[in-house]
Write a protein that binds this DNA or RNA. Structure first.
Length: 347
DNA sequence: ATCCAGACTC
DNA sequence: GAGTCGGGAT
């Protein structure tokens, strides 16, 4: 059956724009850009939370002060401080999986691929990057960032419409968004999910990109994570699509849920399920070969929307249920709210 | 009325 | 860890 309500943001991943690896990385330079006049950007990490403020005063950037706060929570990204400035972390990231792969994982993956292809999944082949394709690299990357921001919790066509309206109004670049009215942006991106916050985040992101990255986007994972509204999932997506640089697996709730059902991930040194997508990502990266890091997402997203659904997984139609420890075992969620003694009576 | 799904707050 | 945001689909 067709699946018209694909809300994956990962169509972005499918058609990889040709991004020369030799592209300049303005964002990876030190954060002391300097010569921008009147603007002030504080980027600071406090107990793992983002604190980002922008004001119309003087430019000044503060790198993360991890020393003062104990061990950083993103140490695995290879974050480093050198003379108070950021350093690109690509080289320091250990990307060789060393953990023990779960049994039959290759069969399971192949089985899921078959299910997905048989189902003519429409998950991809269009997307916001189309709008960006005609743009020069810097603008294209910015469009990718905005598209990612908008696409979360939003269906493809809605996201696409919003991007088109932004494009028509010349509001898909850092400088123009920075000047634009927040209410205008809000109106243009409606009805994407959480449009109010996203409009505000777009303004902040535009300002930060303008001041700190000369209108480009951050080129490292940890700097992307500092942008408001950009969390682990989107940061990895943007690294993949925007920079063609795979730093980690893009784990959303589908990947999180399915990997746990399959018994592919667990908390360190235990057999307990992971409790967050971040935890899942780290556990998965311990053993999954890197060639699979990008394709695993669109694969499991589609699978998770059609077969291995959150509420009632269709184990009966799943060809890999024999390998799945959770097959036919997931019971309906706790009927927490049903009040009346007889839940079947509805009027 | 419930579910969806990512980032963030408390 | 639970609640919040904001629509749309069911």
């Amino acid at each position: 059956m067709s699946n018209p309500k694909t809300r994956s943001s990962f169509k972005l991943l499918q058609s990889q724009c040709e991004t020369p690896a030799s592209e300049p990385n303005p964002g990876s330079e030190s954060s002391n850009g300097g010569s921008v006049s009147e603007l002030r950007v504080f980027v600071r990490k406090k107990r793992g939370r983002k604190i980002i403020e922008t004001q119309e005063t003087k430019y000044e950037a503060e790198p993360l002060d991890q020393k003062q706060r104990g061990p950083p929570e993103i140490e695995e990204f290879g974050y480093k401080q050198v003379n108070g400035s950021f350093q690109s972390s690509n080289a320091s990231f250990a990307n060789v999986p060393t953990g023990e792969p779960p049994p039959n994982w290759e069969k399971v993956l192949e089985g899921i691929r078959k299910m997905r292809s048989a189902e003519d999944a429409p998950v991809d082949t269009m997307g916001c990057e189309k709008a960006g394709n005609s743009l020069p690299p810097k603008e294209r990357r910015f469009a990718v960032l905005v598209s990612s921001l908008l696409s979360s919790q939003t269906k493809d066509n809605v996201t696409h419409g919003a991007i088109q309206r932004l494009l028509q109004n010349d509001l898909l670049a850092a400088d123009t968004i920075d000047k634009a009215d927040e209410a205008t942006i809000k109106g243009l991106i409606y009805p994407v999910g959480f449009y109010t916050r996203k409009a505000a985040n777009m303004k902040k992101i535009a300002k930060i990109c303008l001041v700190k990255y000369d209108g480009d986007i951050p080129s490292s994972l940890e700097e992307l994570l500092l942008l408001p509204g950009i969390g682990p999932k989107m940061a990895h997506l943007v690294m993949n699509v925007g920079w063609n640089n795979v730093q980690g697996i893009c784990v959303d709730t589908h990947v999180h849920r399915i990997c746990n059902r399959l018994g592919w991930v667990s908390k360190p040194r235990t057999k307990q399920k992971t409790s967050t997508p971040e935890e899942t990502r780290q556990a998965l990266q311990l053993w999954l070969p890197k060639e699979e890091w990008v394709p695993i997402n669109p694969l499991l997203v589609g699978f998770g929307q059609t077969v291995c659904t959150p509420l009632r997984p269709n184990c009966g139609m799943c060809s890999v249920s024999d390998f799945c420890p959770s097959a036919f075992r997931e019971i309906s969620r706790s009927p927490s709210k049903s009040k009346s003694s007889s839940p079947s009576k509805k009027l």
